[in-house]
Design a protein around this nucleic acid. Structure first.
Lengths: 146, 146
DNA sequence: CTAAGATGTAACTTAATTAATTACACTATA
DNA sequence: TATAGTGTAATTAATTAAGTTACATCTTAG
């Protein structure tokens, strides 16, 4: 299974850009929150720009969300970073001369698709706004008890 | 993201065992349908046995399902082969001194959990019996038109 | 009772994927 | 025009899973 943190990192970047929109947001600064390299951040921001989720201008450290946070869902970010690849992997090839091998890929593919759509519907219910608000509430709770 | 075909291969093995229960089922024979090596098949069968889905006896080429096919769901196979690992990866570590880095893992973890459960509910709705019947219907259709 | 054919499993190799790193051309602006 | 930044390609390193080799163990036909 493909283990990639691109999806999570990208949400992190978007939330960071929105919450800290009043300070200077170089890839260096963002990378210190995500704890990865600035190049990785810039690469991901390239993907997010390509997908129409942020606007950036070369040379200036001022990325902006291209939409209202309430209009960006986790599914938008997922599709931007992971594409619409299957959630569960099928074999590249199974024996077509066998009743099982010749049919199972289609059969499982359909069931997998149903499960993927169910997961994606959930991701589509959550907006960047929700993520940001929940982060801020959790932080308030921390600040309160310490 | 971790790309693994263990899940699909295991369903394949289980369906094969049930459909061909009257012939001799060596790991060699099964591997010719899945198109992988016999060792890989034996390794997966070890996992399926461990999970209580099949019974095997060393030396004999006669694996059997341990339950009725209608009582084995795709989720059972998924949990046996992939465990209950997250569907979407979180970072190992983000900056705890940052409001975003210090809270986002928990927040995303919860949303990811919702999506995972939605997908798993779908997998839990499909039984090995369903898979086998659909395979056989598809095959009948192929035989008919040729 | 033993040879042939199987399983079970460990150890190692290969392949594929992703994050990290290095390097550098290009852009903005003080 | 120097400084600080982005954009992106190319390479390296780390991780993971599949494939391979090897062999101990078990079953059973003869």
């Amino acid at each position: 299974m493909h283990v990639s943190t691109r999806f999570s990192d990208s949400i992190h970047i978007l939330a960071f850009i929105e919450i800290y929109k009043d300070i200077k947001l170089s890839s260096e600064v963002i990378s210190s929150s995500v704890e990865t390299s600035a190049v990785v951040i810039r690469r991901l921001m390239g993907i997010l720009r390509e997908a129409g989720l942020i606007d950036t201008k070369q040379g200036t450290a001022e990325p902006k969300l291209a939409k209202n946070p309430a209009d960006i869902t986790l599914l938008d970010v997922y599709l931007a970073t992971e594409g619409n690849r299957p959630l569960f992997e099928l074999d590249k090839k199974t024996n077509p001369d066998c009743i099982v091998g010749g049919n199972i890929q289609d059969v499982l593919g359909n069931y997998y698709e149903d499960a993927k759509i169910a997961a994606q519907r959930k991701l589509n219910e959550v907006t960047l706004q929700d993520v940001i608000e929940t982060i801020l509430v959790k932080q308030k709770y921390k600040d309160n008890i310490t």
